[in-house]
Design a protein around this nucleic acid. Structure first.
Length: 179
DNA sequence: TTCTCGATTGTCT
DNA sequence: GACAATCGAGAAA
């Protein structure tokens, strides 16, 4: 694996509370083949295909039988930029490399088959690299692209590292008027 | 079995 | 700013 590592620092996430959140696939206890993994104990990945094109990378976060997850929307490339460019087919290093959930999953080489992978495994893991985040920079805002969820779409369940250039595109336009 | 629609992105006007 | 692309999951019949 040496030399084949791609690492990113997560700068944007969204929380999905399965039981009460209409924006969640597991809303109201819905349990299907696809969402089954959300009911597993936290620490595993939930990756699925959206619009037939884009892969979404989620982290299952709660206890067994509680379908909560966090969508990783955007991140800052730390290591293996060349490989990410290869995977996404982009020529230059640009923010869109890992900005936006679809791009991020692509850059990291994540596909639906990786659903259920433990995030403590060798191939895929999340760790603390000691980066010191100023808590004042962490902001909560309404989520993106979930307008259909009614009132739940207004919940401030999106968390961003404000000021990061890697926040996804549409959000950059909106980021100033939330707080 | 069939139909509808989405936790998005990129391109066109 | 608006809209098409694209396919699998979920719901309905």
């Amino acid at each position: 694996m040496e030399g084949n590592i791609t690492a990113v620092r997560i700068v944007e996430t969204e929380a999905y509370r399965g039981l009460t959140d209409r924006a969640s696939h597991a809303w109201n206890g819905r349990r299907t083949n696809r969402t089954e993994i959300m009911y597993a104990a936290g620490g595993v990945s939930y990756i699925y295909l959206c619009y037939g094109i884009h892969h979404m990378f989620n982290v299952v976060t709660n206890q067994k039988e509680i379908p909560d997850a966090v969508l990783i929307r955007s991140a800052e490339p730390i290591e293996g930029v060349e490989m990410m460019k290869q995977r996404t087919g982009k020529q230059d290093t640009e923010v869109s490399l890992t900005s936006g959930p679809g791009n991020l999953a692509k850059a990291l080489g994540l596909f639906t088959q990786q659903t259920g992978t433990s995030l403590l495994s060798d191939g895929l893991y999340i760790s603390d690299d000691g980066f010191n985040v100023n808590k004042a920079q962490i902001k909560a805002t309404p989520r993106i692209g979930v307008d259909y969820a009614g009132d739940d779409a207004l919940l401030p369940y999106r968390f961003i590292l404000s000021g990061s250039p890697y926040l996804s595109g549409k959000n950059i336009l909106n980021k100033t008027d939330i707080f």
